[in-house]
Design a protein around this nucleic acid. Structure first.
Lengths: 341, 341
DNA sequence: CGCCCTAACGCAAACGATTGCAATCTTGCC
DNA sequence: GGCAAGATTGCAATCGTTTGCGTTAGGGCG
């Protein structure tokens, strides 16, 4: 028994037909006509010989890799694993495979990641790293690579994207806080270079306006990197400049944790002294003390839809300008309560 | 300007040499001799034309994919993203790419994942899913695929693995609890079908024995699935059967959180009434209330070393029986304190 | 019974690289 | 100056599939 893998030729020889016929039997989708009997004999022989397609040969010929590149900021950020699972689960069902790269929010890394993906000739791209203005994204569309954005999108909506209703979500949670009786409400925002950061800020503003509450500049601080440390600093600035604050709504759960730290450092308690909210509903959001009131976004579904979308683009479907907005839901937990005063 | 990608032939034509020469210039590692001048002209032409290697053609010829399959239980489990990053970061430096599959602890999924990886002709495999006796692992070694285990290993140590010193780690944290003065210490273990579950249990037992403490059967319960819910049930069983327990050491942080829930349900406080410890030091372990005293394992490094190891195997190095044991460290936080009585 | 059409299959040329071997050219040395 | 050794480079086969086109055979129809 030789160890040489079984090829189309082996099957052809065994059955007594030409390799092209075997190929046609094994790829019925191509729409080639083969007689019932031959098809049966071929499939049987393939089975017996334990044939398995050589993907390199196929790809060389068809110029398809059945591979999708996925670029995310950092797999270690709890937001992305669920998205990634959504992507991979639906890709694999379609016979596609994801290859992953982390950008670490570094343009060089990002560029390098994209580079290797293109070198590997991915059939499409899913990016979770988009800035509102993004040169790399622009280059990809210019190069006509099937591309969809996930979670974040670009300013001009020129690229298909699957995102949450960040404005609506933030408006919802802000109004929850307002409805509890809060009037002086601060916001720790994410970077305004990201659609999420901007939209969530706008959602906050919309809610404030809608209820006739003043928008004070001092009540909005940006957490430059989306870390708990940055958020802690931001929360401290907020509390210093406006000691009457009774609530802080933040642009994501990690920032909420940073706010917790700031409150603790000041000897304030949440939610008794100050209510805090997050966004995303990351795993464990319900396990912290207090459990975070937050906005649940559809992480797995976001990934799954992005994958479906890119697959449709690959099939040649024209999905121009199609963006999907997933509806988030409010999750009220222990970090919000009516204000004391 | 045609859109047809640049090939070796294009370069050859431009420079006036044969494609084989171009190939040799572009693959210097192969050790072929090419004159300085030709090499220079070729590289320059390649640059000018914007050549990029067609990986399909190369792979077809060399039968290498520069791809490693990684199989993990669930990316959503906070233990794995850091491991994954370790793997990917070091693979990509070597020009390799990881393709990921989740088993969801389901043998069918696992088998299917392995199947697609083999269909894609990965050059090697990294498995984080190994049971102590694992048929799939056995099949892989039988098929002589370069393979390394990570985090968990097989019983007979027949496969190279990169794991933590689970016994030592658990012994360490148990002794920490003992040194605080605890005598009645329960253990919530992981599944004994996994090396981690068994080793950690043994570490606990070793510590108890070493200090002349009785090993009571009632003080050991297995959390069948490694979830907080299962752990909560386990902790309740523990507390019910042995109300004098003053400490519970668990096999991982998620189980510790389950123990928290059980204590809270009983109106007991941690660490005042019962001390609790975890294992792994997952992200946020310091953010819970109380922050979890736990054993920090080297997650990123574990992944990185596993990647390095599989690469060495691919290069043909004989690493027979080489396993790496990474040293964990004790991280004392707020969930442990001296017993009241 | 002849002709045309279609179904089924074979033929062979790709896809783009790698690589053992042959051919050529230098160079050194006697 | 001739020859051998060594350094470069060319030649051509090959990896395993896919696919446009040609060929064959059979069937329907006039």
């Amino acid at each position: 028994m030789s160890n040489r893998p079984v090829t189309l030729r082996d099957i052809a020889k065994k059955v007594g037909v030409h390799t092209s016929t075997v190929s046609r039997v094994l790829n019925p989708d191509a729409g080639a006509k083969v007689s019932r009997e031959v098809a049966l004999k071929v499939t049987r022989a393939a089975e017996e010989l334990g044939y398995s397609l050589n993907p390199f040969a196929r790809s060389l010929k068809t110029n398809q890799s059945f591979t999708i590149g996925v670029l995310i900021p950092d797999l270690t950020d709890p937001l992305f694993p669920p998205i990634m699972r959504g992507i991979e689960d639906t890709l694999s069902e379609a016979g596609y495979t994801a290859i992953l790269a982390n950008s670490d929010n570094d343009p060089d890394h990002e560029r390098k990641g994209l580079e290797t993906m293109r070198a590997r000739k991915v059939d499409g791209l899913i990016l979770a790293t988009a800035q509102r203005k993004d040169r790399l994204v622009a280059r990809c569309v210019a190069d006509r690579i099937p591309l969809v954005l996930v979670n974040r999108e670009v300013e001009d909506h020129s690229v298909p994207a699957v995102v949450n209703d960040d404005i609506g979500g933030m408006r919802m949670v802000t109004e929850h806080v307002i409805s509890l009786g809060h009037r002086r409400i601060g916001h720790i925002s994410g970077p305004q270079t990201l659609s999420t950061g901007m939209n969530r800020l706008n959602g906050y503003l919309a809610a404030m306006r809608a209820h006739g509450l003043p928008e004070r500049h001092a009540d909005m601080v940006e957490a430059a990197p989306l870390t708990d440390a940055a958020a802690q600093a931001a929360a401290e600035a907020l509390l210093a400049s406006d000691p009457d604050l009774t609530a802080i709504v933040t642009a994501n759960d990690m920032l909420a944790l940073g706010a917790y730290d700031a409150l603790e450092a000041r000897g304030l308690s949440c939610p008794d002294d100050v209510s805090v909210t997050g966004f995303n509903d990351i795993p464990f959001a319900d396990k912290f003390k207090p459990p975070i009131t937050t906005v649940r976004i559809q992480k797995f579904e976001m990934g799954a839809e992005a994958a479906r979308l890119v697959l449709r683009m690959i099939k040649g479907e024209n999905v121009g300008g199609l963006s999907m907005l997933l509806r988030p839901t409010l999750v009220v937990r222990g970090s919000t309560a009516p204000p004391r005063r």
